[in-house]
Design a protein around this nucleic acid. Structure first.
Length: 1070
RNA sequence: GGGCCAAUAGCUCAGUCAGGUUGAGCGCUCGGCUGAUAACCGGGAGGUCCGCGGUUCAAAUCCGCGUUGGCCCA
């Protein structure tokens, strides 16, 4: 057995364990060990390959790793294929930056194929870095074979699923109001829009009414949407006022919501006004108005029903209460416009420039046209007021460009058509924590809109949709062709393609055409929203549909594990895709963990500068400590507030475990005891051994219970409590002496066996959490198998489980703690024995517990005898005068009486002076006897001299600290043993090395005490002989001294000089 | 603006579901023990249970309204 370092050094442990794993292919051995077990299909939620592992992803992968290791130990063949999400706009944007590109035109100039290659290379580079990061955390997944969303097999899974969705009639093309990033020239999803503060124009505009006098007044911050105005919205129930407003001698009739009249007229700097009429919103419906930019935008809407007043529920009584509505430029306007059957007019291109339909403004970027539009309105006398307004506005999550709202043709999965089924399928999975499913997730699914799956970009999975060449605006689902596999593609396209060799990315599929039934179909140029990619992970992990065997055995996933942001992300996309494609949710259990925030619970961010990287944490504390720290906090929905001190504490806890582990090894080695061969039937088990073995059974049961509810942190903390609270604090302390015994003994072998059992099972219980440390300890203790991680999870042994003993020991520990407290009060340190302790309790269970463990208790508290009583009758009652009663009775003498009473015992007060019959207390002051009433004195019971008491749950412990010669003798002897041990330590002597010792005690009486215990001292300190007569050389030059070390000590005020001398090899056996 | 979650000792968190004297670990401090020794044990100090209101004999716990933080959505 190699040497164990004195201190837990995570870096060394991790390097050593890792070397062992590499050398023996421990991962392979572990998988082989469970190859025939029942399957457990875990699916890894693929992290995006944007860069490095951060604390959150480190936590995520650590939790996954712990669960996978646990499931293996419980006897499962676990699917552990990691995944990477490698497509999408973030990578495109980064590659564009690397190449110095500004727009899509640059990409087209470079060539799509070359751009795709750049993106692929970028994603692969990032993946490799992340591979290394995850591996470095000790995550055992199949890193040789990750699933990658950019592989043809994986991409095919999305095609396959999408074809199922189409077959279910849930694929549609339609105009939708979308968020367009004018730089990226693509639609982006609502959840990809980030909000920030911007300053915009704020204008009030008059829309002149047709066929009646006056104008509607609207307010907007986006003048550029006025060319697309189609209607004005009112609140049907709101009151509107027609006011005649005067300024510069002119008067106008304006319509405004009743509560905002004053405010708006002030903005328009009107001098005076008069209310001439009141109408409800409902009454205004159908009023027609002129388009305010009719001349500038000749193609403005003029179809039936346009440019009229309608009601809408998005109208509020602020600004003007009349809302300019352009269905081509806003979500709500769009929805309402659709309801009203209005055509959608959106004269803006994907790059944010006005099209020819915008007339005068054609070719101008929309926000650049704002000033011109405002000027035009002003020139026409339609501008009531113009100012600036600060508000929140959306921008593209990748390039920070402000978005524009457009209505464009997009492809959708119409999940709103299957809402009931989605909600029902939610019930087909168990969530940990459950509230996340029943509240959060359900709410989201209830409100989920149709899923826009098309993006007008390059780096993604091409939509497998082919549409007729001459297709017009109205395209039905029956008209399109959706291809499900590479094989099918090769069969149906007009060109010759090899399905095996096809990359599937753009542009390889862009020019493929299908001709069927006399119609030629062309692929739509879009790629999938990247959420489609990961939504098929349950199939992609199994290479379905190109491979079918695993799919048939395993699907759906038994478990997925992600943070709570994925409620609206991956948890949802899988439910949506699963339900739309095959009618079921692709996972059975969800473990949802939290986010890693900073110590104040705030989000870690570059701008705040509070980011802690896993690399930094590993460097400062180690991999296992970081893992244990992350896993020791609530793993179900709660965020983590990362704290360096907490990480250090976790490391300290592991250090205690390390100490417990290394403490017995030198003794076992001396005795040639192999912990791997530990046999509880060899040797004698004492009550503490039985106890610790029973506790071990309880801990196993508790941990298993927690694990099975995915209360991972509770399982880990139960183990930590056992190791620190039970094993280190109590058990090790209790068996230390047995280890130190020189001779072989049944008792020592019993302790070895019990401790070995505890350690070996603890190591297994620990393995899922801190795999390096567990491995290192296992290899030292046993090493019978290639790795600790291929072993099975320890099971409860009912024969070793004794709950009564555990309960009794809990009582004993309470008593011991109270006794230590009492000793401290009594000023008697533990090294000095006490005559007796008295346990006072009225609880039979407590009395029984204490009696049954008497020997152990006496040993632990270093007492000679134990008494267990219902009431301790040696308490002395001390008087406490009650001035409220004494004062009025004795008047001027009251102070004197009080002083005389205070501190007297009941015996003294009720003794000679008192009336014998009534036993009324009395005191004598200055020769006068004062008789007292009973209520003038209360008593407080205290232990007698030399006895100190302390309460515990269930009673009180009294410690009798009275000294006897015998006790003093033992106390001094033990004090001296302690000093010699200290000196042995200073000389760095081996445990078994013998010494010659000289004791020079300055006090004659104490010398006598010490001499009584020479034999005891010799045995405890491995002193082969005591030296007599030698002169100590206390000058410090050491020349004349035969001793290796001489020291003067103060032992309880007595000068003691001790010399010890290392004996030569030939004398060692003496 | 909306949904969900959280807030308890200096720090990390139990306790909240099912109302009944607020607990643990770490840290601080004083002491003890010690051939696990850079470890270990005991005592002590330390609380507006985020705030306000309600229900109740009784609220950290149940209800309502807020504040702050997190995630998601607008």
């Amino acid at each position: 057995m190699e040497d164990i370092s004195d201190q837990y050094a995570p870096e060394e442990v991790e390097a050593s364990a890792e070397a062992h794993w590499d050398e023996h292919d421990a991962y392979g051995a572990t998988k082989a060990a469970h190859a025939d077990d029942p399957p457990f299909f875990f699916v890894d939620g693929p992290p995006y390959t944007s860069g490095q592992m951060h604390l959150g992803t480190a936590w995520n992968k650590t939790l996954k790793d712990a669960v996978i290791r646990y499931k293996r130990m419980r006897g499962h063949r676990v699917t552990d294929r990691p995944g990477y999400d490698m497509h999408g706009l973030p990578i495109e944007v980064k590659v564009e930056r690397e190449l110095g590109f500004d727009s899509k035109r640059d990409i087209e100039e470079l060539g799509v194929e070359a751009f795709i290659e750049e993106c692929k290379a970028f994603a692969e580079r990032n993946r490799e870095t992340m591979d290394d990061d995850f591996r470095s955390m000790g995550v055992w997944m199949d890193w040789e074979n990750p699933y990658k969303t950019l592989s043809p097999e994986y991409m095919e899974a999305t095609w396959w699923a999408f074809k199922r969705v189409h077959e279910n009639g849930l694929v549609k093309r339609g105009k939708r109001a979308i968020n367009q990033c004018p730089r990226c020239e693509t639609a982006i999803a609502d959840n990809e829009v980030e909000y920030h503060e911007i300053e915009s124009p704020s204008i009030y505009v008059k829309f002149p009414l047709v066929d009646r006098e006056g104008s509607l007044v609207i307010w907007t911050t986006t003048p550029w949407t006025i060319p697309a105005n189609a209607f004005v919205a009112v609140d049907g129930e709101m009151t509107y006022r027609a006011v005649r407003a005067e300024t510069d001698g002119r008067s106008e009739l304006l319509y405004l919501a009743e509560p905002v009249v004053e405010e708006v007229l002030k903005k328009g700097r009107y001098e005076d006004y008069e209310v001439v009429d009141e109408v409800s919103g409902d009454e205004m419906v159908g009023w027609e108005y002129e388009h305010p930019l009719a001349d500038e935008v000749p193609d403005h809407v003029d179809f039936e029903g346009a440019l009229q007043v309608y009601t809408a529920d998005y109208v509020e009584a602020d600004r003007t209460g009349l809302v300019h509505s352009a269905p081509g430029h806003g979500q709500e306007d769009f929805e309402r416009g659709r309801e009203l059957g209005l055509e959608i007019f959106s004269p803006v291109a994907g790059n944010g420039e006005f099209t020819d339909e915008a007339g005068k403004y054609a070719g101008t970027f929309v926000r650049d046209a704002n000033d011109e539009i405002i000027a035009d309105l002003d020139a026409k006398g339609l501008l009531l007021s113009s100012g600036r307004h600060t508000h929140r506005y959306g921008q593209c999550w990748r390039c920070d460009t402000d978005i524009v709202f457009l209505a464009t043709d997009q492809w959708f999965i119409t999940v709103t058509d299957i809402k009931d089924e989605l909600l029902e399928n939610i019930e087909h999975s168990e969530w940990y924590p459950q509230w996340a499913r029943d509240n959060r997730f359900r709410n989201f699914v209830e409100d989920a809109p149709d899923w826009n799956v098309s993006r007008q970009r390059y780096w993604g999975i091409p939509l497998p949709i082919w549409v007729p060449e001459d297709a017009g605006e109205d395209l039905s689902a029956d008209d399109i062709v959706v291809v499900g596999t590479r094989e099918e593609l090769a069969e149906r396209v007009d060109q010759d393609v090899d399905p095996e060799a096809l990359d599937l990315h753009r542009p390889s599929v862009d020019d493929l055409t299908i001709t069927e039934g006399g119609t030629t179909y062309r692929r739509v140029p879009d790629v999938f929203d990247v959420w489609i990619d990961s939504s098929v992970a349950s199939w992609g992990t199994l290479d379905y549909p190109s491979e079918t065997a695993d799919y048939e055995e395993l699907w759906p996933a038994d478990l997925i594990i992600e943070a709570h942001d994925q409620t609206r992300g991956w948890f949802w996309s899988q439910l949506g895709m699963g339900t739309a494609a095959v009618g079921d949710v692709p996972y059975r259990q969800v473990l949802m963990h939290g986010f890693a925030n900073d110590k104040d619970g705030r989000k870690m961010s570059k701008s705040v500068g509070n980011i802690v990287t896993p690399h930094e944490a590993i460097e400062r504390a180690g991999r296992d400590p970081l893992r244990a720290y992350l896993l020791s906090h609530d793993q179900q929905g709660a965020d983590l507030a990362f704290e360096w001190d907490g990480l250090a504490d976790t490391q300290a806890t592991l250090n205690i475990l390390w100490n417990v582990f290394r403490f017995p090894l030198p003794y076992m080695r001396l005795d040639g005891y192999d912990p791997a061969e530990a046999d509880l039937d060899d040797g004698e088990l004492s009550v503490v051994d039985e106890w610790v073995l029973s506790r071990l059974q309880s801990v196993k049961a508790e941990m298993t219970r927690h694990w099975d509810e995915y209360e991972v942190h509770a399982a880990l903390n139960a183990l930590f409590d056992f190791v620190t609270g039970d094993v280190s604090r109590f058990y090790v302390k209790a068996i230390r002496e047995r280890m130190w015994e020189e001779e072989d003994s049944a008792s020592k072998r019993g302790a070895y066996a019990a401790l070995s059992t505890v350690l070996l099972e603890t190591v297994r219980l620990l393995a899922p959490f801190t795999p390096f440390l567990a491995e290192e300890m296992y290899q030292h203790l046993d090493g019978g198998e290639t790795t600790v991680h291929m072993l099975s999870w320890p099971e409860v042994d009912p024969d070793l489980h004794d709950p009564d003993l555990e309960a009794n020991m809990a009582v004993l520990r309470n008593v011991e703690e109270a006794a230590a407290n009492a000793r401290q009060q009594g000023g008697r340190k533990l090294r000095w024995p006490v005559q007796r302790i008295v346990v006072e309790t009225d609880d039979d269970a407590v009395a029984e517990a204490v009696r049954s463990l008497e020997g152990l208790l006496l040993d632990r508290v270093n007492a000679r005898s134990l008494e267990v009583v219902e009431a301790f009758d040696e308490l002395v009652e001390y008087a406490e005068p009650q001035m409220g009663v004494i004062g009025p009775k004795f008047g001027g003498d009251a102070q004197k009486v009080m002083r005389a009473v205070r501190g007297k015992t009941r015996e003294e007060l009720e003794g000679d002076l008192a009336d014998a019959e009534s036993a009324r207390p009395a005191v004598e002051v200055d020769g006068d006897v004062y008789e007292l009433e009973a209520d003038m004195v209360e008593y407080r019971a205290e232990p007698p001299e030399n006895v100190a008491g302390a309460d515990f749950e269930g009673g009180t412990v009294y410690v009798d600290t009275a000294l006897t010669e015998e006790i003093e003798a033992e106390g001094y002897a033990r004090d001296i043993v302690r000093r010699v041990q200290e000196m042995r330590k200073q000389l760095d002597l081996d445990v078994e090395e013998h010494i010659r010792t000289r004791l020079d005690v300055a006090d004659e009486r104490v010398r006598g005490f010490v001499d009584r215990h020479r034999e005891f001292i010799a045995e405890e300190t491995r002193t082969a002989e005591f030296a007599e007569g030698d002169e100590f050389d206390l000058d410090g030059d050491g020349v004349d001294s035969p001793f290796d070390l001489v020291e003067r000590w103060d032992v309880e005020g007595v000068d003691v000089t001790i010399g010890i001398e290392r004996l030569g090899a030939e004398e060692q056996t003496a």
